[in-house]
Write a protein that binds this DNA or RNA. Structure first.
Length: 907
DNA sequence: ACCGCCGGGTGCC
DNA sequence: ACCGCCGGGTGCC
């Protein structure tokens, strides 16, 4: 179930990057991507030599220009090809000389459209559009005019979005924004009733939305419909966007993108698809066998051979997590595998996960391959599933769990050094499961066993990982042979349309699998803000994608009904003694900060300010939280270098405490924190973007010069001084008391209710262990310092419903990935307010999600009359601010930040 | 190509 | 005739 943290941080970074680009985007950065290109103008030219080539075009058809530097007659030759790549002719010599120069120096991208005269015999006209970055405009115009050609500018061209072309401002911030909105609405209609439902061959009953997805997938696989934008024009097939036509029917890939939110059951639906839609819409013929659990136990017990003499087991082939087998039965007999992949729990064992013998290999294979009178190519019988390593065990678990125990599905785990690389063997399996890494390693640019098989179906799990077309794994994936192709991904579009191209290319959606047509027909029009382009994109996505979110509704009813959740703020009164101490610290802090405000040096002493704020926030939780390290030291006497050192040290302490600080660039929680020389904290990707685009680079907060080499890395999770607090020296606090009385009351009312206790301060979690232990609560703790393995253990323990299982989980606010599943808990106690409400929401979502059976109650403790109260007020305005921040400039944001601090300190 | 260009044939009106 | 003009041959790059 747990998705690797790595993928999520990857996603978050790229989101952050987009955001930071959006915030800084002025369109002036040199970027060769089509997004930033503008139209220089159009030029009428002619295509000659038509009679020598077979390529034909239609009226208004788009054509592409291809340089032919090796042409023996003219090294400037520019070939003209139609959408399908057939040569139509050449650009006339004189013009070609000029174009060659522009193309070879990459000064502009040149699109061609044949406006009319498509049936001419000897030559035909072509309208060329020149696209490039503003900085190259002059060179292009110059180059053309030196050959006596003049670009036509204005809206007279045939290009539909020419009117937008001169508005360079289109390219910058507003563009990114309108794109973002566009993405949001891209999927709007996708959750609608796609088709009826279909019965499944799995033993787990499918939920209605899963049945719906299954039948949609079956229709996608079985239908022979044309791909979008193609029309059958009596024998010829005509593309309504490129105006091209072909004689052979353009094949629509049998497959698509299942883009449901995480947790809606993409894996289960896919397993059901494999079982129920084999050839000609018939289910996969499966051999009956003894219930599989017995098989498994046999395997465990005899290690590598089985009592049933008719089957002989393969050699060990990989690693298998056996979490849903009877572990207690098997564990004593397991061999612990020494070279198991690092992030898998140690209870993994070397085992055989498939039993394939002579019988299974030959007879079953032959039965499946029996000839049938259908359009299906029945030679292909195997489904290849490729997934990240982190979800491999999930697939095995789910196959185990959902396939009826009395049938034998041959699943081969293509993983590990001993894997069977024989393509003939692989193609006799029902399912071959492997990882992107194994596939890519095998491929290494040319082929490999997986590329020698023609698969019935290829499934890319977490398919967004192939969004970078330059990555080896993407190239390898494109080169697989398959009849049906599926992408499973909760987030098919991460940050740009470019992500989608790779998916479309994988699905071989004609003609967009060729980058140029994708760019010309979809990407550039959409980027330039063309309404038709966006409509086309929507139409395209709609017919290859099914996406539902957990809030989607189908036919007016919610897709999945989550239990209610309620949110309370519980005000905590400090004791007189605490209040005195707090006021002392506050007055001191106020004095310091108000001095900075008067001097106008808040941002220069930002680290100091943060430290003061964190100190007060910690005080609200527990007076012992503030380590001695945060105490005030002399300020005036320090040299600038010492001051800087001190400030940076302060920041390290602030971050080290677990405090959820905000990145001034992306306005969300700092991820992969780095500290600048001038003592400000940013996400690494955010500041990297500043360094990349600004010359010379300046700190977005104080405008001081920054250098990449001077950034101080801050380790992701720092080990706070470990060890609990000795009970003798321990004292309580008002907030601790408030929590404990809630927990005790809950346990009294219903001892089966489990709670999450969340704080951003890891030390606070340690402090809380003492009273929990004293009151006899069984609890576990999950924080960022724990190994992947330990986390899995803790989660499993907490999620367990057995009588002695923990009632409380102490959870650090930022621990764990987004996918963390803590549905055993139905109460959430947020011990301290975070800057970023989204982080709190995320935390709550860990238990308020699919699988939660109880109503969820969230309690947030806020100390009355304190910074915390002010933080909550600011939080309320936060969403507003974030939205406005898109339109405001950095200096405005800087001011609002100072105002925010003043508000916090009531200055 | 119902063009342009080339180069040989030709040569007052 | 070291030209012009005519008309056939010819034709992408």
């Amino acid at each position: 179930m747990q998705s690797s943290r790595g993928w999520f941080s990857f996603m978050d970074d790229s989101v952050t990057e987009t955001l930071s680009q959006a915030l800084q985007g002025t369109g002036e950065q040199p970027d060769r991507e089509p997004d930033t290109e503008i139209l220089f103008g159009n030029l009428r030219g002619s295509v000659v030599g038509l009679r020598y080539y077979t390529g034909v075009v239609n009226k208004r058809e788009m054509v592409s220009l291809v340089r032919q530097p090796q042409n023996p007659h003219d090294r400037n030759a520019v070939m003209v090809a139609n959408v399908y790549g057939s040569q139509v002719g050449h650009i006339k010599r004189e013009l070609a000389a000029s174009l060659a120069n522009i193309m070879d120096n990459n000064l502009a991208r040149i699109d061609g459209v044949v406006p009319f005269g498509a049936t001419n015999v000897f030559t035909m006209p072509v309208v060329l559009s020149f696209w490039g970055t503003e900085e190259n405009r002059h060179a292009v115009v110059q180059q053309l005019s030196s050959h006596g050609f003049k670009l036509q500018t204005g809206s007279s061209g045939t290009n539909t979005h020419a009117h937008c072309a001169n508005a360079a401002s289109c390219v910058g911030i507003c563009l990114t924004l309108c794109l973002k909105n566009a993405f949001d609405s891209l999927f709007e209609d996708l959750m609608e009733d796609k088709n009826g439902e279909r019965e499944a061959a799995v033993c787990t009953p499918l939920l209605p939305h899963q049945k719906q997805a299954l039948s949609w997938m079956c229709v996608c696989e079985n239908s022979v419909a044309l791909p979008p934008f193609w029309e059958d024009k009596g024998g010829l097939f005509y593309n309504t966007l490129t105006y091209s036509s072909v004689r052979e029917r353009p094949q629509r890939v049998r497959g698509g993108i299942l883009a449901d939110d995480m947790g809606l059951g993409k894996t289960l639906t896919t397993i059901a698809l494999i079982l129920s839609n084999f050839h000609n819409g018939k289910p996969l013929p499966l051999e009956k066998c003894a219930p599989r659990v017995m098989w498994r136990l046999c395997e465990w017990m005899c290690d590598c051979h089985v009592s049933d003499q008719s089957l002989s087991l393969q050699r060990p082939v990989g690693f298998l997590q056996c979490s849903n087998l009877r572990q207690t039965d098997c564990i004593p007999r397991l061999r612990v595998c020494e070279n198991s992949p690092g992030n898998m729990p140690a209870f993994l064992c070397l085992c055989t996960c498939v039993c394939v013998g002579k019988r299974a290999g030959s007879e079953v294979g032959a039965a499946i391959a029996a000839p049938s009178p259908s359009p299906d190519d029945t030679a292909a019988t195997t489904t290849l599933i490729i997934c990240p390593l982190s979800v491999l065990s999930n697939w095995l678990d789910q196959l185990e769990q959902h396939v009826r125990p009395d049938v034998r599905l041959n699943v081969y785990l293509y993983y590990g050094p001993e894997r069977n690389r024989d393509p003939r063997f692989l193609s006799t399996q029902h399912v071959v499961l492997t990882t992107y890494n194994v596939m890519t390693a095998d491929y290494s640019g040319s082929g490999g066993p997986l590329h020698s098989v023609t698969w019935l179906r290829v499934v890319l799990d977490e398919g967004h990982v192939i969004r970078n077309p330059n990555a080896q794994q993407s190239k390898a994936v494109l080169d697989l042979n398959a009849h049906r192709r599926w992408i499973l991904s909760g987030t098919p579009i991460q940050n740009s349309l470019k992500d989608l191209w790779m998916l479309v290319a994988f699905l071989r959606l004609k003609p967009f699998d060729v980058r140029e047509w994708w760019n010309r027909v979809i990407q550039r029009p959409v980027t330039v803000g063309d309404k038709t382009g966006l409509g086309n994109l929507q139409a395209l996505v709609r017919c290859i994608t099914l996406r539902r979110t957990k809030t989607s509704r189908v036919g007016g009813r919610p897709l999945v009904s989550l239990p209610k959740r309620s949110f309370n703020i519980e005000e905590v009164e400090l004791t007189t003694r605490e209040r005195e101490e707090y006021e002392l610290a506050r007055t001191e802090g106020r004095a310091t900060i108000s001095r900075y405000v008067e001097e106008g040096s808040v941002l220069r002493n930002y680290a100091d300010v943060l430290a003061i704020l964190v100190r007060l926030r910690q005080f609200c939780c527990h007076p012992d939280l503030l380590g001695s390290t945060l105490s005030q030291t002399g300020v005036v006497t320090a040299t600038p270098a010492e001051l800087r050192e001190r400030l940076i040290e302060r920041l390290r302490l602030v971050l080290g405490s677990g405090s959820d600080e905000e990145c001034p660039v992306c306005l969300s929680s700092v991820r992969l924190a780095v500290i600048t020389h001038c003592a400000h904290v940013y996400c690494r990707p955010c500041i990297a973007e500043v360094l990349r685009t600004e010359q010379p680079a300046r700190c977005p907060l104080c405008r001081g010069p920054i250098k990449a080499s001077e950034l101080v890395e801050f380790p992701q999770e720092v080990e706070e001084e470990a060890g609990g607090y000795p009970s003798e020296n321990w004292r309580s606090s008002s907030k601790v008391d408030a929590l404990m009385s809630s927990l005790l009351r809950l346990r009294c009312e219903d001892s089966s209710i489990k709670s999450l206790v969340v704080s951003q301060f890891t030390r606070f979690l340690s402090l809380l262990e003492v009273p929990l232990r004293e009151e006899g609560f069984r609890f576990v703790r999950l924080d960022g310092t724990m190994s992947q393995r330990r986390r899995a253990q803790v989660i499993q323990e907490f999620q367990s419903h057995s009588p002695g299982s923990p009632l409380v989980m102490l959870l650090s606010l930022k621990a764990g990935g987004v996918g963390l599943n803590l549905t055993a808990a139905s109460h959430v106690f947020l011990m301290d307010p975070a800057w970023n409400p989204a982080v709190e929401d995320q935390c709550v979502d860990r238990c308020h999600r699919l699988g939660q059976t109880r109503d969820v109650v969230i309690t947030k403790f806020i100390v009355k009359d304190s910074v915390e109260e002010n933080m909550v007020k600011i939080q309320r305005q936060k969403q507003d601010l974030v939205e406005k921040a898109f339109g405001t400039n950095p200096s405005k944001r800087k001011t609002s930040r100072i105002e925010e601090i003043q508000a916090l300190m009531e200055l």
